[in-house]
C-alpha cells in the first residue's frame, strides 16, 4: 500500500496522525485513509501528510479524499510541482466544507502550523454542548 500511518506527537506535545504517501493512490488506499480518520483517537483530529513527488491520486481516490470531513486540520508537506498542483485543486474542489488544509514544504513548518490549529468538535457533540 502506498500509504503508511503512524500516531505522532509534535515537539509541544500535540498529537496527530502522520501519513506518508507515495506512488499511485487507488480507491482502496483512500478508503484506508478514511478508516484511519474514523479511529476515535483521530476522529476530528489533526493530520500531517507527507506526499512524495510524482504521487498520483487516481480519480476515484480523489473523490474519497475530497469527501472526507471528520478532521480539524490537515498539513500537507509536498515538494513536487505536479502533485502540489493536484492537491491545490483537490482543496479547491472540497469547497472548504471541512476543517482547514494547508500546504508546506517542510515537516517542521507543517508541524508548527498544526500545533496552532484548534480541534473542531464533532457536530453531534457540538450540538450537545450548545443546548
Amino acid at each position: 500500500m502506498p500509504l503508511s500511518f503512524r500516531d505522532a506527537t509534535s515537539p509541544t506535545g500535540v498529537a496527530y496522525l502522520f501519513i506518508d504517501t507515495w506512488g499511485v493512490i487507488e480507491l482502496e488506499d483512500a478508503q484506508a485513509f478514511v478508516a484511519q480518520l474514523d479511529r476515535p483517537e483521530h476522529d476530528y483530529g489533526r493530520v500531517l501528510s507527507v506526499v512524495q513527488p510524482k504521487t498520483d491520486f487516481r480519480p476515484k481516490a480523489r473523490k474519497v479524499y475530497m469527501q472526507v470531513e471528520n478532521f480539524s486540520a490537515v498539513a500537507v508537506v509536498v515538494n513536487g510541482a505536479i502533485v502540489r498542483a493536484a492537491i491545490n485543486l483537490m482543496i479547491r474542489l472540497m469547497h472548504h466544507r471541512s476543517g482547514v488544509v494547508s500546504l508546506f514544504e517542510t515537516v517542521e513548518a507543517a508541524e508548527a502550523w498544526l500545533e496552532q490549529q484548534p480541534l473542531r468538535q464533532r457536530p453531534d457533540r457540538a450540538a450537545h454542548s450548545g443546548s
Binding site: 513527488p53 480519480p59 476515484k60 480523489r62 513536487g80 510541482a81 505536479i82 502540489r84 498542483a85 493536484a86 491545490n88 485543486l89 474542489l93
Partner: peptide, 25 residues
C-alpha cells in the same frame, strides 16, 4: 502530459486532466 514546472499553467493543465478523468468516469 505534465512537467514539474511550478507555474499557474500547471494547475490549469492538472485541472483539465481532472475534468477529463471526471468525464471519462
Amino acid at each position: 502530459s505534465l512537467e514539474e514546472i511550478p507555474d499557474d499553467l500547471l494547475e490549469v493543465e492538472v485541472g483539465i486532466n481532472f475534468l477529463l478523468d471526471e468525464l471519462a468516469m
